[in-house]
Amino acid sequence: MSRFGEVVGTNEVAVNANVIKLDNVRKTYEMGETSVHALKGVSLSVEEGEFVTVTGASGSGKSTLMHILGCLDTPSEGHYSLGSEDVSRLSREDLAEIRNKKIGFVFQGFNLLPRTSAAENVEVPLLYSRPLEPASVRKQKALSALNLMRLDDRASHHPNQLSGGQQQRVAIARALVNDPELILADEPTGNLDTDTGREVMETLVELRAKRNITIILITHEPEIAAYGTRIVSMKDGLITSDTSNQ
C-alpha cells in the first residue's frame, strides 16, 4: 500500500527500525600522487522517521556522505546498510534500482529538465521503474505528488515559468513520486532567499509529519539545521557532534 493511500494525519510512530547504518565508512579520492580523504571513518545510524540535518564547513565531507547514503557512490572502506541490505558492494544496476525505489534526492540546483512540464519532471523516476506502469497511472501519481506540494495548478508549467521555491517543490514532488523510504537533500535552500527557504523547510517538516518519511538534509546554515529532529556536525571527514533537537 502506498503511503499516499494512508489517511492524512496519521502520525505513525517509528519503533527503533534502523533505516540507515553506516559502519566506519571511509572515502578516499585518488588524485594522481595525492589522495584526498573525504570521509575518514564515519559511523551513523538513522531510524525510520528521523529528520537529520547535517552541518559543517565547506569541504567537511557532507556531500560525499550524502552520495554514499544515496547509493550514487560507494565507500572505499566500511559498510553501509540501507534497510536490511548491505549496499556497500552492490553492482551498478542494483544501486540504480535502490535509488529508483527507496531514495528520493533534492539538490541545491533543483536539477529539473528544461522545456519539460512540472508533471513530466515529476514523472521521470517512474520511467525507470520496472515493471513500467501505464502512462495514465504514471500521470496520476505525478499529479498526486504535485498535489501534496500544493502545485497541482502548476502541473503543465515549465521550470522557467516557476519561482525558485516552486521549482524546489517540484523537485521534492519528484523525490516523493516513487514513494521512497528516504529523502536526501543537499543544500536544498542554498539557491533560495530566506523566506522561500523557510517555506521549503516547512513543507519538508509537514511531509515528515504526514508520511513518517526519513529525511537527511545537508546545510551549512544553522537556522536551517534547526528544523531537524537531530543535528549532526561534521569536520574534516569526521562526525564531531550528534545531538537530538526535539
Partner: peptide
C-alpha cells in the same frame, strides 16, 4: 546525472 540519480541504468 539526474536520470542516473532517479534510477536510470
Amino acid at each position: 546525472g539526474l536520470r542516473l540519480s532517479v534510477g536510470a541504468t
